[in-house]
Write a protein that binds this DNA or RNA. Structure first.
Lengths: 227, 227
DNA sequence: CAACTAATCAAGTAATCTATAGAATATTTG
DNA sequence: CAAATATTCTATAGATTACTTGATTAGTTG
């Protein structure tokens, strides 16, 4: 017969294991790392620069994510490339964002202050974009850095990193309908692209979600093939 | 024009907000509280006793969950009742468990050691139970404490708290097929019930998931109506 | 093989988190 | 209104986490 005490020991161990995952999510830098890694694998150095911490610090955070099983890495030459360990890790971080959006009034205020009114033009939903893309009416622009496009992008999308958009604007035909996307709902690249495109008299909207959400939804993606 | 620095400030604030949720998930007791609250609302005292911590400590953890927006409370007389704030909170904690199951070898080992081989008899899946329940062939037993049954249970289930099962066994007809469920996959009540039922010569299996998963899947539930 | 570089390690300090104990508060009950 | 009770508050000590700095490791390149 199992005692009450031994049952408590089991539960403590059980929730101790679950808490390993929770602890990994308990730091803003680690959450930002997970979001960047959802775009595809990256090196420690590039992650450290992007999130604005020292390399030693980024390395430590990545290791604690690895200890919790959330990411994996591989060494290639001098560089160590990290990636999300599993699709479920993206689902988890998306779940965390969903709760934050629903429950934290301060988050909503923060986003409103930073982005202003994002409902004009109305963002496009993934299903709508899929339908329009099939009819060939719409040009899809991937505004993320080229390396992220290479690692995976919405099928049929053009790579137009936001910093290149200005000089490539002239070559984008008018009269078309544009939809820009980037890393996710809190990424600013697509908003900037839409602004530039509309100022130049083009019809443009942003995709509400980013590439990771598109991919997780099982919608068509492409990966750049190495020659 | 937005500066790089101000963009960093925004991102730091943004991920700071997300991390509020992450921090709330970073403690084993808090995760256990969330799982108990997924069964329905409960008082501080009953939660403290169940998870084996002092009332002051339980109160503090519940308050930090509330500060993160994960739970809400209401005061009734001397008692403060806490409940999950939103369906999305259960989805999040389920996502966390899924990642732990997939990624932590130690968790699998722990569960195997404690439960032994759980595949004989094979647990029933929710869809299967739904189909069998409709055909009226199966008796569904809710083995959780009565208070949790009252707060919500699988439609048509009988309340047979695990501690009462022994003395109620005689009144359960033989020749029927029984399916027992409880709080979730790591809850032991249903396993114990299945063991008792089978020892007495009855045909019994456990439901793989618990009540919260059933409810979250949108399957039919009932709530005890107060007279 | 020497110089260089990406990444990690190790140690120290500051900050944060956790549990405890005892006091304080709010509400009910006799 | 006094006693009892559920909960919260406050202060504190100990544990854990986070970031920095400088050294070390592993791999590349000339």
């Amino acid at each position: 017969m199992e005692t009450e005490a031994s049952h408590r020991v089991f539960k403590d161990r059980l929730y101790g294991q679950f808490a390993r995952i929770g602890k990994a999510l308990a730091n803003p830098h680690r959450l930002e790392l997970l979001e960047l890694l959802a775009q595809g694998e990256r090196t420690v150095e590039s992650l450290a620069i992007e999130i604005g911490v020292s390399m030693a610090n980024a390395s430590q955070h990545l290791q604690s994510l690895r200890d919790a099983g959330l990411v994996e890495n591989r060494k290639q030459g001098l560089y160590v490339h990290y990636r999300l360990a599993d699709e479920s890790v993206f689902i988890l971080s998306k779940g965390l964002r969903t709760v934050a959006e629903r429950r934290l009034a301060e988050l909503e205020r923060l986003v409103r202050e930073h982005f202003g009114d994002r409902s004009d033009p109305e963002p496009v939903r993934m299903e709508d974009l899929l339908a329009r893309a099939r009819s060939g009416l719409v040009v899809i622009l991937d505004t993320r850095p080229a390396s992220e496009y290479v690692a995976g992008h919405i099928a049929g999308a053009l790579s137009v990193p936001i910093d290149d958009l200005k000089k490539r604007l002239r070559r984008l035909p008018k009269g078309k309908e544009y939809v820009a996307y980037c890393r996710g709902p809190y990424c600013v690249y697509a908003d900037r692209a839409v602004e530039l495109l509309r100022k130049s008299g083009r019809n443009a909207r942003r995709l509400l979600d980013g590439f990771p959400e598109w991919k997780a939804a099982g919608l068509p993606v492409e990966i750049e093939v190495e020659e």
